[in-house]
């Protein structure tokens, strides 16, 4: 049996359904991301795992134990909040040692364990600082140490990086991943940032409107979206009506198809393309956006605007609006999607 098993979990606030029929399993040591737009129910689901919200139906099992109605105090689940939720009246050391103190572990031992955890998050020397004296990234690392020191069975991270600036966010997420691997921690991470989710996760549970619409490895979710929502949330997929797609690619699809912008080629004279990259279409450049390493073109093909991403190899290749060109499609990357 899996380490964590959630079945038929449902939660309502009055008449509003927050989530319904949630089923998933998590293996020990897995890094799972609950990904979805704001308001999709991912944070409430996370809080329900922690026991901070009651659920209306369904069961949560951890390590062969039904914890659906267990109080948060005895679930042995750690959580890191977006707002850090550090205790402002306590030093870093006291914050980290708090959970041990509540367990009744003696002071000297608690201090020693807290100290080694503070070292793990690379904050040694800051033990006597108060949270207000630390930067956002440091605070979040204290919060991480505080959650980890009690050796939780599951670590929950509720958008822990959202309040931080880009640079800190990037370094901290790698640090989280490193610690997670080191301690073989079963982790559930909540975010609305698909890049973060793909970078960190073993598996992603993509949520929308209170349901998990697709779960799987990051590469599968990214390359094989099951429906339009996943396609538009995970990337800048081009969605093409069934009729047009059937005509262009000689398919027999009842559904729309999704094509990733980076899987479309702009034909270069003299270059050989593989057998699966065949269909050529005439197009006109409408506009382009320079994203740094990538140039994102908007190209019109038979009155349909397509997004095409090209690596920004050299500035000479930048094509002005109005330029004519030929697009090549990789047939293996054309993905039928449900509405």
């Amino acid at each position: 049996m899996s380490y964590v098993k959630v079945s038929q979990l449902a939660k309502h606030f009055g008449d509003v359904t927050v989530f319904e029929e949630i089923d998933f399993t998590i293996e020990k040591g897995e890094f799972i991301t609950l990904l979805g737009p704001s308001g999709c129910g991912k944070s409430t689901l996370l809080r329900s795992l922690a026991g901070l919200n009651q659920v209306d139906a369904g069961e949560i099992w951890v390590d062969q134990e039904n914890i659906t109605d267990t109080a948060p105090q005895s679930r042995e689940i750690g959580m890191v909040f977006q707002s850090y939720a550090l205790f402002p009246n306590m030093t870093v050391l006291d914050n980290v040692a708090f959970g041990l103190k509540m367990k009744g572990i003696n002071k000297a031992k608690a201090r020693a364990e807290a100290k080694s955890m503070i070292e793990l998050v690379e904050l040694d020397g800051k033990e006597q600082f108060y949270p207000r004296e630390l930067s956002g990234g440091q605070r979040q690392r204290v919060a991480l140490a505080r959650a980890l020191v009690v050796k939780p069975r599951i670590l929950l991270l509720d958008e822990p990086l959202s309040a931080l600036d880009a640079k800190i966010r990037k370094s901290l997420r790698l640090q989280i991943l490193k610690i997670q691997r080191e301690l073989n921690l079963t982790t559930v991470f909540v975010t609305h940032d698909q890049e973060e989710a793909m970078l960190l996760s073993d598996r992603i549970f993509l949520m929308n409107e209170g349901a998990i619409v697709q779960q799987g490895k990051p590469e599968d979710i990214y390359t094989k979206p099951v429906n339009e929502f996943v396609a538009s949330f995970m990337g800048h997929y081009n969605l093409i009506e069934a009729e047009t797609a059937n005509q262009w690619f000689n398919l027999d699809s009842q559904q729309k198809v999704a094509i990733r912008p980076e899987s479309i080629y702009i034909r270069e004279a003299g270059r050989q393309y593989g057998d699966h990259i065949s269909v050529a279409k005439q197009g006109t450049v409408l506009s382009h956006q320079l994203l740094g390493n990538v140039i994102r073109y908007s190209i019109e093909v038979e009155q349909k605007a397509l997004t095409v991403d090209l690596l920004n190899r050299s500035s000479e290749r930048l094509m002005a609006a109005g330029s004519s060109l030929e697009l090549m499609f990789n047939l293996n990357e054309i993905q039928p999607v449900r509405a």
């Binding site: 901070l52 959580m79 205790f87």
Partner: peptide, 14 residues
């Protein structure tokens, strides 16, 4: 942040 602080304390066993 009252709610988060109390939640955090609850999860740490208080």
């Amino acid at each position: 942040n009252l709610r988060d602080l109390v939640d955090a304390a609850h999860l740490l066993g208080a």
